[in-house]
């Protein structure tokens, strides 16, 4: 049905009733950080907190979107109402993006699956604000589990995958993935490793490397928080081999952290991180307005004083910090 003329609250009601275009529109509000986003977030937050959030990340070409597709297929067959958030980079030059992950996923997913493609949209931190908001909406409208798929290259993407309840890191033979994983800090982040393209030569080497790195890390690879050592699952995404084992391992992880209290702790941390990110973004934009606009009297004088070497930048910052709330 048409969404024409509806208030955000009306659209939210529609989304709750299962109307997918309504949910699609709410996500747009959040993604654009539009005025409606705050109203929507309010309504969503009270209803969220039920879904198992799974992050899947890996280098480009690791087959993670095919693997996500296989996972979604399994979930559909198990009668779950899953959602996927597929995050891909925007072009740094034009801000545009080509998002092509839906096709293979939709092809295998059950009709109940909700798939949303999302571009990183350049602005630093924007993504770390939008993704939790979108996940909250999916959660509030009854999707469970929610799979966030990101390219494990940029720090922001890695962080996003890392905020999940269960973070899966995909590695493949022949790409130096085990080394990359170590460098990018994915080793600390991973709750589960998947060695994809297990039919390729070198797959067992990748497994061995990962085991070795886990052995060498703190407490022989046991997560300090959970006491769990990340499992390593071998898959062949193209044929779907290993996908059930991957899902079992994901569930095992979830059960364990749910039982030992880690889950609650993680989610609290996640909420605090979101509040923090939101504050940071707010501060940042206020600072930008303060320093580049003329909206606040006296600022230009302070900056002139710094330029004239009569005031140190440190002292200037202290003076201006007191005025941030005036904006």
């Amino acid at each position: 049905m048409s969404l024409r003329g509806l208030s955000p609250a009306d659209i939210f009601e529609r989304a709750l009733a299962g109307e997918r275009h309504a949910l699609g529109r709410l996500i747009t509000f959040v993604e654009r950080d539009a005025a409606e986003a705050e109203i929507v977030a309010e309504m969503a937050h009270t209803r969220a907190g039920n879904a198992h959030v799974i992050g899947i990340t890996g280098s480009p070409g690791s087959g993670k979107s095919t693997l996500t597709g296989q996972l979604v297929k399994l979930l559909g067959e198990a009668g779950k109402r899953a959602a996927v958030l597929a995050v891909d980079p925007s072009s740094p030059l034009t801000g545009g993006a080509i998002l092509g992950d839906r096709v293979r996923m939709e092809d295998v997913a059950s009709p109940d699956t909700f798939i949303r493609s999302m571009a990183t949209r350049g602005h630093q931190g924007g993504l770390s604000l939008a993704v939790p908001g979108v996940v909250r909406l999916l959660d509030a409208t009854g999707y469970d589990p929610i799979v966030i798929e990101t390219v494990g290259v940029g720090q922001v993407e890695v962080d996003i995958a890392g905020t999940a309840d269960t973070t899966v890191v995909v590695a493949t033979p022949g790409m130096g993935d085990s080394v990359q994983a170590n460098k990018a800090g994915l080793l600390e982040l991973a709750d589960l490793f998947v060695v994809n393209k297990a039919d390729r030569p070198g797959a067992s080497d990748v497994r061995r490397d990962l085991e070795l790195m886990l052995d060498l890390s703190h407490l022989s690879g046991h997560d300090q928080r959970t006491g769990m050592r990340p499992e390593i699952v071998m898959t062949t995404a193209l044929s779907g081999e290993g996908a059930p084992e991957m899902w079992d391992a994901i569930e095992r992880h979830f059960t364990t952290i749910a039982d030992n209290g880690q889950l609650t702790e993680r989610r609290i941390n996640r909420d605090v991180a979101e509040v923090r990110n939101r504050l940071m973004a707010d501060l940042e934009s206020r600072i930008d307005v303060m320093l580049t606009g003329n909206s606040l009297s006296g600022v230009a004088e302070v900056l002139d004083a710094v330029a004239g070497r009569s005031l140190s930048p440190t002292a200037a910052a202290t003076q201006l910090a007191a005025r941030i709330s005036d904006l």
């Binding site: 979107s65 095919t66 080509i98 092509g100 096709v103 293979r104």
Partner: peptide, 13 residues
């Protein structure tokens, strides 16, 4: 197709 499956092109751009 029941045995071999159907090819779905992965999008590369």
């Amino acid at each position: 197709e029941e045995e071999f499956g159907t090819y779905v092109e992965k999008v590369f751009l």
